[in-house]
């Protein structure tokens, strides 16, 4: 149990520190790398909660796709981050205010939880089921059976998103120089090489 707690506080501390570095580091590429660290430690926290499916999804989707996309955008777009950062400190008071409000709300929630006494509401809500083989298997069991309709519908929604992106952005440009291997192979010496008789002293 103590090991569990220690691991939790280790990852939680890294996550918070990485989150802080995301907004405070000067180089935007470093920010994205710290964001990846924050995602990774959050995935580790999910593993600690025995939610291994969520942890893996976090790795694949957030780190594998979203963060890499961020990295591309940061590297490819010519944004002047120094300019964006100007007047950063003037938001400090309002940021601090929101932070304080959030902290007070958290204290209220934890306070009623600990000292409220009335636990019937909590008991009435559905309890998590303990399933053999972990939650990946549990999700896999219902995904293609009970929820096959919703799963397929979600697939079609993604198809529409793909078609939409292509319809709205794809342009077929004429005159693009593309390599056509068949055409290259089928060139014969007669059309590839031209022999000219050049009279001396005149040029072509």
């Amino acid at each position: 149990m103590i090991l569990h707690a220690l691991t939790f506080y280790l990852f939680a501390a890294i996550a918070v520190a990485a989150g802080f570095m995301v907004i405070s580091s000067r180089n935007p590429v470093h920010s994205v790398l710290y964001l990846i660290l924050a995602f990774f430690t959050s995935a580790a926290l999910f593993v600690l909660m025995a939610a291994e499916f969520l942890a893996m999804i976090m790795l694949i989707v957030y780190i594998g796709a979203v963060a890499v996309l961020f990295l591309f955008v940061v590297m490819m777009l010519d944004i002047n981050f120094v300019e964006l950062r100007k007047g950063f400190l003037q938001y400090l008071p309002i940021g601090a205010l929101i932070g304080v409000i959030l902290a007070i709300e958290l204290i209220f929630i934890v306070g009623t939880w600990t000292f409220g006494g009335d636990t019937t509401l909590v008991a009435a809500t559905a309890q998590p089921m303990v399933i053999e083989g972990g939650n990946t298997e549990a999700i896999g069991r219902v995904l293609y059976t009970d929820y096959v309709y919703a799963f397929q519908a979600a697939g079609i929604i993604l198809l529409v998103a793909m078609i939409g992106a292509i319809v709205l952005t794809h342009r077929s440009r004429p005159g693009v120089k593309k390599q056509n291997i068949t055409e290259q192979v089928h060139r014969s010496p007669t059309e590839a090489v031209e022999l000219r008789d050049i009279p001396p002293g005149q040029g072509i």
Binding site: A153, I157, V160, I163, L168
Partner: peptide
């Protein structure tokens, strides 16, 4: 929700 999103997404495009 899935029905509404499928319909709306196609309509936006």
């Amino acid at each position: 929700y899935l029905g509404i999103e499928l319909q709306s997404l196609a309509l936006y495009v």
